[in-house]
Computed example of a mutant assay.
Amino acid sequence: MILRSCGDRAILVEYFDLAETMAFFASLRVSAPEDVEELVPAARTILVRHNGNSDSVAAWIRATEPADRAAAPATEPGVIAVHYDGADLADVAEATGLTTREVILAHTEQVWTVAFAGFAPGFGYLVGTDDRLHVPRRATPRTTVPAGSVGLAGEFSGVYPRSSPGGWQLIGHTETVLWDIERTPPALLQPGTTFRFEQV
């Protein structure tokens, strides 16, 4: 890992890849000392915001061991109900060599972990354990993707929290609200939490 100062109240920790980042984030989030104010994971980094005691925080980061990603989730995964009627479902089946039914089963029969958030408020990048669903983004992005659309891109699955442009392969949609400013926290998909998709 590489630690870089970000002003006098944050440290950016760089890791080798997403798997390493997720493993360290899982450990850091459960052992954070009082000096730490926020952890913001990304694909290969974690931003650690702190109260100014950078030496103590840096020592804690270096001393933290990565979690075992193979371990069972600490809490029961949440559930997102999905109608598997996406415009790209057949294309995903063709790209993966699966039937559409097998695509749906592969999506619903695994636990997904929110690796990090980004793109839009409430959008979480979910990582699963079954690599059969790794597919490229669409060659031509759509100018409008409806809110609630469930998609795949690379190693990730995600749900569009609002209507926006997007290039993910759409396999279904959900009525689950991903972003609600009246909820605490507003985003349903918090980094480090786990979810299952359930066919309606």
Rank of each mutant, 00 (worst) to 15 (best):
M1N: 01
I2M: 15
C6L: 13
A10V: 00
V13N: 02
F16T: 12
F16I: 04
L18H: 02
A19D: 09
A19G: 00
A19I: 06
T21Y: 00
A26P: 01
L28I: 14
L28R: 13
R29H: 04
P33N: 05
P33S: 07
E34S: 10
D35F: 02
E37S: 04
T45Y: 06
I46C: 12
L47K: 08
A59F: 01
I61A: 08
I61Q: 06
R62L: 14
A72C: 03
P73Y: 02
P73C: 05
T75Q: 15
E76H: 02
E76C: 05
V79P: 04
G86W: 10
A87N: 04
D88C: 01
L89C: 08
A90N: 10
T96K: 05
L98K: 01
T99A: 05
R101A: 15
R101K: 10
E102Q: 15
V103C: 10
V103A: 04
L105P: 00
H107T: 11
Q110V: 11
V111W: 08
T113K: 08
A115Y: 10
F116P: 00
A117T: 15
G118E: 03
P121R: 09
G124E: 09
V127H: 05
D131R: 14
R132C: 11
V135D: 06
P136H: 06
P136R: 07
R138T: 01
A139S: 10
A139K: 07
R142Y: 09
T144Y: 14
A147V: 13
L152T: 10
E155Q: 15
E155S: 15
F156K: 09
G158E: 06
Y160C: 05
G166E: 01
L170V: 07
G172P: 07
E175T: 14
E175C: 02
E175H: 12
E175Y: 03
T176F: 00
R183G: 04
R183L: 11
P186L: 10
A187K: 07
L188H: 04
L189H: 04
P191K: 07
P191A: 04
G192E: 01
T193H: 13
